[in-house]
Design a protein around this nucleic acid. Structure first.
Lengths: 218, 218
DNA sequence: AACTGTGAAGACTTTCACAGCA
DNA sequence: TGCTGTGAAAGTCTTCACAGTT
């Protein structure tokens, strides 16, 4: 009940709850009910309660959940009650944008270095982060305590980069390259295929249109 | 059997199959079995067959699937057998990178315009795409046949931007802002929360470490 | 011999509905 | 009264296993 067996879909929603509860805390709201949370996030109230019950009973019947306690608990479960050191490989379009993305530091992730195969990029700083040649990976990753890796290289290079990140002892990888990576099971990988997201929207848009031809819906 | 009721998880995998089958086609491979596809993508062979059976029987027992036919069928189902016109709102870090991202045009999505609240950005071109002021949205979206929208603005602005995109008749939205959008059900939204992806990796990395302390796994 | 397509079984997730607490 | 926590029911998705095709 308190072990590692929290279902994947629950974990996805925990991030959602965390994001919203952070906002509530910022607005100095002290208490929130499962119904309110559910409405804000388009999740049923029962689902919210089940999800939160996976890791303790800190809701108060008749009152709801204390925002402060919930915030701390969510961060604790997700592991973002501390800062994670992240490296990025591939300082191209997307890589550069990710290095500058403010959402990462805001949520507990700090870039400690970036790497690129192109020697011309070596020595630059992007978004306040030093860019190194790939050769420097073992040394720099170790020195700066890198824990997670972010891959933003072309698909052809992704597996090799992943292997090198893994060899250096990184504990998890976020993969933006449109390629399926194979890694040992103790190194979690999360694929983010941007084009696939658009494909999903295209699919649903085509269906919604077929079903409901009532014209522009707003 | 041939209607809109294809489960969400299946659709996600269709994109994965499409990506791989495109590569096979590029390598002039003519035939692929469910086992091969499954191994390449870390999906069971039975799952591959079930998924593909949702929309027709074009596998050949004893042989496998014809790559050409499969490619066409996957594109047909996902709706990417034609080009979709896309607009982007929010030409910041991330927005600029998305405008330049080559994976979109490669998979059937073309940016026809971009918009930004900052008047200073008006008139620029980013990644070959014209940037307009928000006021121009109704006119330009209509003129250029915009169908899908991509939101890359700060969380606070996301809902208003979404409403305006919807009002202009867009048929689907990909939302990179860390905010939950509320829109009519005939306008599909797909949220992409980059920080949430890292949170998921952090969660799993922490668990993998607890379970298996055998040191750097490669 | 190799492989697909598919009912049936099994596993997992969500929803329901209500006992119990503040 | 208002709300949580939770078993039990319902629903969804995945895997199994095999008949049938090339």
């Amino acid at each position: 009940m308190n072990d590692a067996s929290i279902p994947e879909p629950v974990i996805r929603r925990l991030s959602l709850y965390l994001r919203h509860v952070e906002q509530l805390a910022g607005r100095e709201i002290e208490t929130v009910s499962s119904t309110q949370l559910g409405e804000a996030l388009h999740v049923t109230a029962a689902q919210v309660r089940k999800d939160l019950a996976y890791f303790g009973h800190f809701g108060r019947p008749g009152v709801g959940y204390r925002v402060g306690a919930l915030l701390a608990a969510l961060r604790g479960v997700l592991g973002t009650d501390r800062t994670w050191n992240v490296v990025l490989v591939g300082v191209g379009n997307l890589g550069s944008a990710l290095l500058r993305y403010k959402g990462f530091p805001r949520r507990g992730f700090r870039f400690v270095a970036a790497f690129d195969a192109d020697p011309a990029k070596r020595g630059r700083r992007v978004g306040g982060v030093d860019v190194f040649a790939m050769d420097a990976l073992p040394h720099v990753a170790d020195e700066r305590g890198a824990e997670l890796g972010l891959i933003a290289v072309p698909a052809e290079a992704a597996q090799e980069v992943a292997d090198r990140l893994c060899a250096v002892g990184l504990r998890g990888i976020l993969n933006f390259a449109p390629a399926t990576l194979t890694l040992p099971p103790n190194v979690p990988v999360d694929p983010v295929d941007l084009a696939a997201h658009l494909e999903r929207i295209a699919f649903r848009a085509a269906r919604a249109f077929d079903v409901d031809r009532s014209g522009p819906g707003c």
